[in-house]
């Protein structure tokens, strides 16, 4: 009896999540992207790497913080990673800790509002797409799309 009750409660609990997952996949097809955020910079020449299976919206704007700005001034390339499942500061801190350990990374910032991981590399350094996806997974999340932004487009 207890097991039956538990199973029913579990099903009731997960039904909304499953429903939203399905709903979200449809919403993503029609999503458009705002470009009027004052703390974001739109760049003309981006290199997009999309995980087609995720079909996630595109966030190609780099979020500027003092650390990000300083790293850009030093001449580093940047990458904006759209990450699924980012809902709280624990998520942000997990990715911050994971990427801060990398020698290639000069600055990192997780933007909860736009669900993006913003990285600026040290000059002449970078991390390839496969490695970034693995690191995001290591932090417990999933990268949907990566947009590499060469430093020449940031100055």
């Amino acid at each position: 009896m207890k097991l039956v009750s538990l199973s029913l409660i579990s099903l009731l609990f997960f039904a909304p999540a499953w429903a939203q997952d399905h709903h979200a996949s449809h919403e993503n097809h029609a999503e458009h992207h705002s470009t009027d955020h004052s703390d974001h910079v739109e760049h003309a020449e981006h290199e997009h790497h999309t995980n087609d299976a995720e079909d996630a919206p595109i966030h190609t704007q780099l979020t500027h913080t003092p650390e990000i700005h300083q790293a850009l001034e030093a001449g580093g390339d940047a990458v904006v990673v759209s990450v699924l499942g980012v809902v709280c500061d624990f998520c942000a801190k997990a990715m911050d800790k994971t990427f801060s350990k990398r020698d290639e990374v000069a600055a990192v910032y997780v933007d909860l509002d736009h669900k993006t991981l913003n990285l600026v590399f040290n000059p002449a350094q970078s991390i390839d797409e496969t490695s970034i996806r693995k690191l995001v997974k290591k932090a417990g999340y999933r990268a949907a799309e990566l947009t590499y932004i060469p430093s020449m487009n940031l100055n």
Binding site: A17, W18, A24, E27, P57, G85, V87
Partner: peptide, 12 residues
């Protein structure tokens, strides 16, 4: 199991 979405996360 972890379910990822643009605006949500669910875990078991």
């Amino acid at each position: 199991k972890r379910w990822f979405g643009e605006d949500y996360q669910a875990n078991l």
